[in-house]
Structure formats: C-alpha cells, structure tokens
Nucleic acid binder design. Structure first.
Length: 98
DNA sequence: GTGATGACGGAAA
DNA sequence: CTTTCCGCCATCA
C-alpha cells in the first residue's frame, strides 16, 4: 500500500503553523481524494482541522470551525480566508516541525 | 477483475 | 453567486 505517500501527507499537515491552513489540493494536487482519505484516517495528534477545501469551505463543518477560530484563523463568512491563512505546499516543505 | 465511494477540484451551466 | 457534472487517485465490497 502507499503508506509512504500517506505518511508524507500527514507529515505536511504537521508543519502547518498555528493560525494557518492548507488545502487537500496543496497536500497532493494529483490525488486530492486520496489526501482526504488520509486526513480522515490520520493518527491522533495531527492538526487535521487545519486542512480545508480549495475554496476555503470546511469539510467537518461546525466542529472544524471551532478549532480554527480557536487558533485565530481568519474567516471570510463561513469560509476560511485563504488569501491570509493558506500555506502553499511548497512553503510546507520548507517549514520545520520545531 | 469490476463497480461504487470518499473529510476533493475544476469547469460548465 | 449557486448548482451540476465529470475527472482524479486509492480503497473497499
């Protein structure tokens, strides 16, 4: 199985800084569906709430909304303000885990 | 092996 | 702006 790819995606999610978010498409542009499946199966301790849809809408509705608001993620109505909080995949690769 | 499904994305209407 | 439809990769029945 492609545990390698899944692990790589999870690894990127871990690098998302607090108050920022990324999209499934940025995690794996070639297979956003797979990314979603990975996030859905992600192990505990992973900030999955920082992963939103390409248009900034939330996949887990209110539950996710609360976690994001809690980290001061900028919202634009009921969607995340990607212009301010989106972290491109390239940036994720450069950010360190701390 | 075939077909349906998903925490998706983008284009078209 | 919203809704609809098709395409994408991998997993599961």
């Amino acid at each position: 199985m492609d545990r390698e790819r899944a692990e790589a995606i999870v690894d990127r999610i871990r690098r998302i800084p607090e108050g920022m978010v990324t999209t499934y498409g940025e995690l794996d542009p070639a297979a956003p569906r797979f990314a979603g499946n990975v996030v859905a199966h992600c192990p505990p301790g992973v900030p999955w709430h920082r992963v939103v849809r390409a248009d900034g809408s939330l996949a887990q509705g209110e539950r996710q909304r609360r976690l994001l608001e809690q980290e001061d993620v900028p919202f634009n109505g009921s969607r995340v303000d990607l212009a301010e909080a989106l972290v491109p995949g390239e940036e994720l690769a450069r950010i360190s885990l701390d």
